[in-house]
């Protein structure tokens, strides 16, 4: 059991690390697309790691199955949400940082 506890602890800590770095990125990154990238890290990697850590803490019963269902659901939905967000921003005409720099340079000339 000790081995499982250690592994689950490592997974949980890694999940918290990715969650925090996602939050930092959301505040510190310069434009919309990089922020979506940071936020999607929280949605996907951090959630998977934390759920994985919690999975190892269960006694492999109904709770394990429920956590697995949540995991599967998150694996499907959160990348889709990030994708839809970025795509609709693109659809609305928002430029990436590099592109907007490029177009500004073009205007200056």
């Amino acid at each position: 059991m000790l081995f499982l506890d250690i592994v689950s602890g490592i997974l949980l800590i890694a999940g918290v690390f990715f969650g925090l770095s996602g939050a930092m990125g959301l505040f510190r990154f310069p434009d919309f697309y990089t922020r979506v990238h940071a936020a999607s890290v929280t949605d996907s990697v951090a959630a998977i790691l934390i759920l994985g850590g919690l999975l190892l803490q269960t006694s492999f019963d109904l709770n394990t199955a429920k956590l697995l269902f949540i995991l599967a659901f998150l694996l499907i939905t959160s990348p889709t949400a990030s994708h839809a967000l970025a795509k609709s921003a693109r659809h609305g005409g928002l430029l990436t940082l590099a592109e907007s720099k490029h177009s500004k340079a073009g205007q200056a000339e």
Binding site: F73, I76, T77, T80, H83, A84, K87, S88, H91
Partner: peptide, 18 residues
């Protein structure tokens, strides 16, 4: 704008029954 959104269509069809 969602008409061309293949990913959303597939995922929605996948999760609506769930």
């Amino acid at each position: 704008g969602l008409k061309s959104h293949l990913v959303l269509h597939v995922v929605a069809k996948l999760i609506i029954p769930m």
